[in-house]
Amino acid sequence: MGKALIIGAGGVSNVVVHKCCQNPDVFEEICLASRTKAKCDAIVASLPETKTKVTTAQVDADNTQEVVDLIRSFQPDIVINVALPYQDLTIMDACLETGVDYLDTANYEPPDVPKFEYKWQWAYREKFKKAGITALLGSGFDPGVTGVFSAYAQKHYFDEIHTIDILDANAGDHGYSFATNFNPEINIREITANGRYFKDGHWVETEPLEIKKVYDFPQIGEKDIYLLYHEELESLSQNIKGIKQIRFWMTFSQKYLTHLNVLQNVGMTSIEPIEFEGKQIAPIHFLKAVLPDPASLGPRTKGKTNIGCIFQGRKDGKPQTYYVYNICDHEEAYREVGSQAISYTTGVPAMIGAMLMLQGTWKKPGVYNVEEFDPDPFMDALNKHGLPWHESFEPTLLD
């Protein structure tokens, strides 16, 4: 059916390539490209036998012309960006120049400013519309599936949704004293930023991890959850009708937060460069280099994740509550594709989004977040491709 250029060769990319190759009728040919070609080759070497033709290439995703040259050489129908969020715009520029559809899993973030905003990518709406190509933003889990869950709830169970609480729980244990489950730099920048949530038409800002609650999650039990800002709040606050409040919560163990606090206190999480032995280096870049590679956590991580959304609103004039969530097992994910559940829950939705675009199901010129499309085919695909969801109409609510 189509050809996909996949840029990036980390844990999420590994999942995307494996899941695309499980669907060779849709993904007939793949080119996997990264700054380090050897990483691409290692992913390809780990693949089971597949009818999908897979090749690799070297590309610097910071360089639009290199991406343009690769696109023109391979001639894909879609570019799946699972590189770093800093590279979103250069890859979008390359897609514009070559007239190819685009998909990513995380919004653009300037390297020197820890801001998670869609404004830079939303500014491309008219350009993509004029070029007749589609850009699908944030087709991971959160953002991604959480947006699909929201659109699904709005379509089927509510006349109006008043509140959304997004809950991201990881009960996995990798045995290290301190490690991050995805890119350490992105992860730490996200956690150490101020919290923010949407309420009554405006944004309320909090200190980092200021607001804490305890929630009893299906299958993984009670966990400490902390209010963070997450990019899907920005798009959902605009795209879900009647919304009065939307918050994002993530679990952290006390051990993790103690380590993070110490690292922050001594300046190791700073993105401001310092001079060291005659070179400029951001402390967080050095920290990233000494922490375990997230891609290495797969074989040693046990436990489950639980990510979902709790909705409150009204249906037929009556109050309605609805909770929809997915549970993913780290060890099962590793057995299937060689990556832990954090990468799996991001990589599977990226494949599904790309599949729906290639099939023409999710396709219209412009730049869109996932909740702007019909959620039903995506929800069906989650059940078929490894991320089955569960629902409850009487969940425990957060005050």
Rank of each mutant, 00 (worst) to 15 (best):
S270Y: 04
L263W: 01
G278N: 07
P273T: 11
H202W: 10
I211T: 12
A179E: 02
G267H: 01
E277T: 09
F252K: 07
T180A: 05
Q238M: 11
I246L: 15
A169Q: 09
A171E: 01
I211V: 15
K244W: 00
I240F: 08
H230S: 07
N239C: 12
N265Y: 06
S253V: 12
G195R: 01
F248L: 05
S177G: 14
L209Q: 05
L260D: 05
V204E: 14
N261A: 13
Y256L: 08
Q219A: 10
T206G: 12
T258H: 12
I191S: 02
M268N: 06
E232T: 06
N170R: 03
N187R: 04
I211G: 03
M268F: 11
K213I: 12
G175Y: 01
T269F: 08
F182I: 13
E210N: 07
E185I: 14
M250T: 13
A169R: 03
D224G: 07
G172A: 12
A179T: 06
L260V: 08
R189F: 04
I188Y: 04
E207W: 10
L228H: 15
H202N: 13
S270K: 06
L227N: 03
K255Y: 02
E185L: 12
N194M: 10
Y197W: 10
Y197H: 14
T180H: 05
E207Q: 15
Q219C: 09
D200T: 00
A171D: 09
F182Q: 11
T269V: 15
E232D: 15
G175P: 01
T251C: 14
G278D: 05
K199I: 03
V214M: 13
K213W: 07
K213C: 04
I271R: 07
T258M: 12
N170T: 02
K212I: 11
G172F: 07
M268S: 06
E210S: 11
S235N: 12
R196P: 00
P184I: 02
I191Q: 02
W203E: 02
E210W: 04
E272A: 14
S253H: 09
F252E: 02
S237K: 02
K199T: 01
E272S: 12
A171I: 00
Y229F: 15
T251M: 06
F276V: 10
I246V: 13
I240Y: 03
V204P: 06
A171P: 00
E210D: 08
N181H: 12
W249S: 07
I271E: 01
P218N: 05
G221R: 00
E185W: 05
N265C: 11
I243S: 00
K241P: 01
Y226N: 08
I274M: 11
I240W: 03
G221Q: 00
Q219L: 10
F182Y: 14
Y229T: 07
F198A: 00
I246K: 05
R196L: 10
N170W: 02
G242S: 03
I186G: 02
A171F: 00
N239I: 08
M250G: 13
S253M: 10
L227M: 13
F252L: 09
E190C: 11
N183R: 03
K279M: 11
E277A: 15
I211C: 04
V214L: 13
G201A: 06
T206S: 13
I191K: 06
I191V: 15
K223L: 14
D173W: 04
N239T: 13
K223F: 08
R189A: 10
R247K: 14
K255V: 11
Y215L: 09
K244F: 00
